[in-house]
Amino acid sequence: MTFKLIINGKTLKGETTTEAVDAATAEKVLKQYANDNGIDGEWTYDDATKTFTVTE
């Protein structure tokens, strides 16, 4: 399955996707991606669209 991350950061905005077997696995990968890029904020997840959003 494809999961999307929408980034609403102070210095970085955009989106990325990852392939994962489930939402929990995708969340780990996407949170690591955000952490690697210095993004720390509030996370939400929409199961209907398989989209995570992080807002700083």
Rank of each mutant, 00 (worst) to 15 (best):
T53W: 07
A23N: 05
T11G: 09
E56L: 12
V54P: 00
E56Y: 08
V29E: 08
A24V: 11
K4N: 06
N35D: 13
I6H: 05
V29H: 08
V29F: 15
T53Y: 10
T53R: 06
T53M: 08
V21G: 10
Y45Q: 01
A20L: 03
L30E: 00
A48Q: 11
D22E: 04
A23H: 09
G38T: 04
T16N: 05
D46E: 08
N8L: 13
G14T: 14
I39F: 07
M1G: 11
E15C: 14
T49W: 04
G14C: 14
T11R: 10
N37Q: 13
N8I: 14
Q32T: 07
I39V: 11
I6P: 00
A20E: 05
A26I: 02
T25K: 07
G41C: 02
T11S: 13
A23G: 05
D40G: 08
E15A: 09
T49E: 07
K28N: 07
D36S: 10
W43D: 00
I39R: 01
T55Q: 06
K10E: 09
N37K: 13
K31I: 06
M1T: 14
K4M: 09
E15Y: 14
W43E: 00
T18V: 15
E19I: 15
K50P: 00
N8T: 08
D22A: 03
K13L: 08
D40M: 14
K4W: 11
D47W: 08
T11Y: 14
L5T: 01
A48E: 13
N37S: 09
T53A: 05
T53K: 05
D47H: 11
E42I: 15
V29R: 11
T17C: 11
T16H: 15
V54H: 01
D47G: 08
T16W: 15
A34S: 05
D36A: 10
A26Y: 00
D36M: 11
T18C: 14
D47S: 12
V54G: 00
Y45F: 06
I6N: 05
E15L: 10
T53I: 08
T11Q: 10
A34V: 06
G41K: 01
T2Y: 09
I39L: 07
T51N: 03
T53H: 07
T11C: 15
G14Q: 12
N37R: 15
L30F: 15
K10P: 09
V54Y: 02
V29L: 13
T17D: 05
K50G: 05
K28R: 13
F3T: 02
K13S: 10
T51K: 03
A23Q: 12
E56S: 08
T16E: 05
F3N: 01
K31M: 10
T25E: 11
T44Q: 11
D36Y: 07
T49C: 04
A34E: 00
K4P: 02
T55V: 09
G9P: 03
A23Y: 13
A48C: 07
G41R: 00
T2D: 07
L5G: 02
G14E: 12
